[in-house]
């Protein structure tokens, strides 16, 4: 499965994403990463972007629409939104935007914490294939891969991010 060449370098895509967000997002916007890839990206973006952005993390497991088919996965993380969600401006961050179902789940969850003034969407990779009407506000890179493959973001021990392609639904 030598599809790795088709993928952009994760660090290059992250730099491109940060450049697009800089000056465009609100100076007090909260960066909320979707576990696990989006959470790593939110941490990195908070360091790269000027301003003091509150950080949050969201685990959408309790809001997924495929729960009755797939069940809960083994390691559900705790959603942490240590700022007032009502009235806030939020940039939701995910690693790979595909069907849009995680974004739907994340927005539902955010509204159970309060009514944000606005939500924007920043993704490292947009691979197309949407099943719901979501478009990202900020994109690091756009790629297309075959439907039976997943794009996975990994974090190396030294903190560097790396993209790989895996067979979808292998688990």
């Amino acid at each position: 499965m030598n599809r790795r060449n088709a993928l952009p370098d994760a660090e290059t895509a992250l730099a491109a994403l940060a450049e697009r967000m800089q000056g465009a997002i609100a100076i007090d916007a909260a960066l909320v990463g979707i576990y696990s890839g989006g959470a790593w990206l939110a941490q990195r973006l908070a360091e790269m972007l000027p301003g003091n952005h509150p950080l949050g993390y969201i685990d959408v497991s309790f809001y997924r629409d495929d729960y009755s088919k797939k069940g809960l996965h083994a390691n559900v993380a705790t959603t942490q939104l240590p700022f007032e969600v009502g009235g806030s401006r939020i940039v939701l961050i995910d690693d790979v935007l595909y069907t849009g179902r995680s974004v739907r789940a994340a927005i539902n969850e955010l509204f159970d914490y309060g009514r944000p003034d606005s939500i924007e969407l920043a993704v490292l990779i947009d691979r197309g294939g949407r099943e719901l009407p979501f478009e990202p506000t900020y994109v690091g890179a756009r790629v297309s891969v075959a439907k039976n493959l997943s794009i996975v973001l990994n974090r190396q021990l030294d903190g560097r991010l790396e993209l790989t392609v895996e067979a979808a639904g292998g688990a």
Partner: peptide
């Protein structure tokens, strides 16, 4: 392990998840 994230559901405005 699964119970851990459920503890924080009680601390939210809307104390409900749709599972």
């Amino acid at each position: 392990d699964t119970a851990v994230p459920f503890v924080s559901v009680a601390e939210r405005d809307v104390k409900k998840v749709p599972l």
